[in-house]
């Protein structure tokens, strides 16, 4: 479902990062551990097609990302990959529901209010459907971001440090949520983190060297 081979990325000339090969099957939950500066976020961006590697290849759901044109890649990402960022950002001018529907529209899918309601319901946020995103608490924002990542039934969910700003309780909650939602969608989940607290909850993990 998600594979990398001989992946290399360089910032400038003398700062090249080599990544270990990854091979995740459908429905598996992976943890990508590494200290700050180890290139965790870069790897996530390579996997999500947000950056292009200098060497090696990324295959997502059977498609080599390199073979796609820029526009195709944008659309492909929107359809097949759900990304949850460290900090949740939304289109401020839109409310919760509109932000969710936007994810479908931009991926070229038909917007479905039922899907938005269903996901928010699963994340116990149904009552915030018409709220402004800026009025939500940080935890709620994180949950809406997860809902947004799930809108298009992605095969792969990438999460970048989803728990770094949260206390133990909320940390556990978010991870539980991500796992349960990934299971519900039968999606591959890959969490990038430096948070050692998560180790115990994942049996598959890759460790990045600094």
């Amino acid at each position: 479902m998600l594979q990398t081979q001989n992946l290399e990325f360089s910032y400038g000339q003398n700062q090249t990062i080599r990544f270990p090969d990854i091979n995740c099957q459908q429905g598996e939950h992976w943890l990508l551990l590494g200290r700050s500066g180890s290139g965790k976020t870069t790897l996530l961006q390579l996997l999500g097609g947000l950056r292009t590697p200098q060497k090696g290849k990324v295959v997502v759901a059977g498609t080599a990302i390199k073979s796609l044109s820029a526009t195709e890649l944008d659309r492909f990402r929107g359809k097949h990959i759900g990304i949850v960022f460290q900090q949740s950002h939304f289109v401020k001018a839109l409310n919760v529901q509109e932000n969710l529907l936007l994810a479908q529209q931009l991926a070229g899918e038909k917007p479905s209010k039922e899907r938005a309601v269903e996901l928010l319901d699963r994340l116990s946020l149904k009552h915030k459907l018409h709220a402004k995103t800026s009025d939500l608490s940080q935890g709620e924002q994180q949950r809406v971001a997860i809902a947004r990542a799930l809108m298009n039934h992605p095969e792969i969910i990438l999460a970048d440090e989803p728990t770094s700003a949260l206390d133990d309780y909320n940390c556990e909650e978010v991870i539980k949520l991500l796992k349960s939602q990934a299971i519900a969608e039968n999606a591959t989940l890959l969490i990038v983190t430096h948070d050692g607290r998560l180790k115990a909850q994942f049996d598959k993990s890759v460790e990045l060297e600094a």
Binding site: A70, T71, D74, R75, K79, A103, L106, A107
Partner: peptide, 18 residues
């Protein structure tokens, strides 16, 4: 101000043209 938003829109599938 909306730089992040625009990047987000790109992540969600909007092309440069869009």
């Amino acid at each position: 101000e909306r730089k992040y938003e625009l990047a987000l829109i790109r992540v969600m599938g909007a092309s440069r043209g869009k």
